[in-house]
């Protein structure tokens, strides 16, 4: 089964669950879904085509909303399942029940973008320092790092 066939099958099988499906580049399939239907789509992809390997989850700050992209890979192709979540209520469902290996990526999203992952088994911070101020999310576009003035040892 090649990538075109997968696109065909997705668009005929779960038309009601997805917003859009396209073949962006060779072996790269884009699927756009509502965040409520994300789990159902992932489940479908896993059972139908064997997309079990979640390469990573990328978050992108689009200003009004956050885009969250689930990069699924198998030997057939790579599927990027993308959802949007508004900035005012940035919640996404946890995918750990379907893909157990997603846990670290979801915790990383929480740290970096301040997304709230619902039903995540372990919500503790993952990456940032222990003394990191609460409510600051470094990868948001409106967050800027003000570098403290550097000491120049022995210098002018």
């Amino acid at each position: 089964m090649n990538a075109e066939a997968i696109v065909q099958k997705i668009s005929s099988d779960i038309k009601d669950k997805i917003q859009e499906v396209s073949l962006a580049a060779p072996l790269r399939i884009n699927v756009k879904v509502d965040r409520e239907k994300l789990l159902a789509v992932l489940q479908y992809l896993k059972e139908q085509f064997g997309f079990t390997h979640l390469a990573t989850i990328s978050g992108v700050d689009l200003g009004e909303s956050f885009e969250v992209i689930y990069h699924l890979a198998s030997h057939l192709a790579t599927v990027n399942v993308r959802i949007l979540t508004p900035r005012s209520a940035p919640t996404i469902p946890s995918t750990v029940s379907i893909i157990p290996g997603a846990i670290l990526y979801e915790r990383e999203l929480q740290d970096m973008f301040g997304l709230v992952v619902q039903n995540i088994p372990n919500p503790r911070p993952l990456l940032l320092a222990d003394d990191w101020p609460a409510g600051e999310y470094p990868l948001r576009k409106d967050w800027h790092f003000n570098r403290p003035a550097e000491k120049i040892p022995g210098g002018k």
């Binding site: 670290l104 970096m112 372990n122 503790r124 911070p125 993952l126 990456l127 940032l128 320092a129 470094p138 990868l139 790092f145």
Partner: peptide, 14 residues
């Protein structure tokens, strides 16, 4: 066991 990472985190993505 649980993971807490970050001692080598430098913020490359930002």
């Amino acid at each position: 066991a649980d993971l807490k990472l970050g001692y080598n985190h430098r913020g490359i993505e930002k």
